[in-house]
Design a protein around this nucleic acid. Structure first.
Lengths: 191, 191
DNA sequence: CACGACGGTTCACAGGCGCGAAACAGTCGC
DNA sequence: GCGACTGTTTCGCGCCTGTGAACCGTCGTG
């Protein structure tokens, strides 16, 4: 049994953890993982018939298998897991690839520039992001004008407010995204 | 391209339809199926690297593959599809194949084009569907004129409104179908 | 202490264009 | 032939984006 966190791509998330299980030898491991609700990849010995489908957190490969194929299959499984339960009980903001940012059940659409800025901030949630870093994140091919960045941060700020997300400014350092304390919640303006 | 309805056992369900696609040769078939929100199994030629994960309605096998393993994998995919659907929405919209869309006890009839558009949107309920995806979903064999898509989205929007379904537009990204919140949503016993 | 430089926030405005919407015309089915 | 379905044209609203400028608090300097 070997965990393959490192095999999954950069947008790593502990919910997408996948464990490799030899099967049927390690059936007990499999049932334990299923009970915990964790994803697992069954490595089928050459002559074992494939098991019946279980839940969405499971997949299998027939041994022997090429390393690349195993990696790919783990990636797929991790992707399914991450997609199936985005924010299941988790409060963290999730930036999907289609221009939306979600927090729990709420979401707002972000225009292209703000989407790129948001990605930079979400990736370093709770940590300071340099103005320069934000600039290159938002405008990969050119430099934003003197206060173009400021203005877009302002607008992003307003757009994120309904989601209980706040962009703090750290003077002369950069910006920091944080999740508001959940004492009071604002209704989404998703139209 | 060969449909494997016959390969799956008696507990067959139309919604769990899985289409076999040779890949990468039949990439166009793949994108068409994705646009329509239908499940597909990619048959990877021996030396092709595995594609990146797409949506939950896709899986792949490396050729050559034992018949039994292919069957098993199709079974797994069909199982995932069948399992995802009921869970996707408690009172989620259901599109039957006779041109109706139902929400609870209410329903409306949809003309052919809007029915195909609705299927693409319902399959990705709560997620963004690209304009391109909608275009190929609605017009599999031709390209809609510049505004044809817009107009049909508009009409679909009006037809869906009585069912408490809303098509949100995500500017420069696509469209997103969501179920209106009547007042307060029942949370799954978390808080 | 007064002053100014600096960094940051916010507003107002203008150009561009994505998209909504009405109105019209052609086609198909009953 | 009537009504539903479909596609096109046309108009223009409103969002996205960048710029200029006013305003304000902080910090350094003379």
């Amino acid at each position: 049994m070997r965990t393959v966190a490192a095999m999954v791509d950069d947008s790593w998330d502990r919910r997408a953890d996948v464990t490799l299980v030899r099967w049927p030898e390690q059936e007990t491991v499999r049932t334990a993982l299923r009970a915990e609700g964790r994803a697992r990849m069954l490595l089928l010995s050459p002559s074992t018939p494939a098991p019946d489908p279980d839940d969405d957190l499971e997949d299998w490969v027939r041994m022997p298998v090429a390393e690349a194929d195993l990696r790919a299959r783990v990636r797929w499984l991790a992707h399914r897991v991450a997609q199936d339960r985005p924010g299941a009980g988790d409060r963290g903001p999730v930036l999907d690839d289609d221009g939306l940012i979600r927090v729990g059940d709420d979401w707002v659409a972000l225009p292209p520039v703000e989407h790129r800025l948001a990605r930079a901030l979400v990736n370093r949630l709770g940590a300071v992001v340099t103005r320069d870093a934000l600039a290159t994140a938002g405008w990969p091919d050119s430099d934003p004008g003197r206060n173009a960045l400021d203005v877009h941060v302002l607008r992003l700020r307003r757009r994120l407010a309904p989601l209980a997300l706040t962009i703090h400014t750290v003077r002369s350092r950069g910006y920091l995204l944080s999740v508001d304390a959940p004492d009071r919640k604002v209704e989404p303006a998703a139209t």
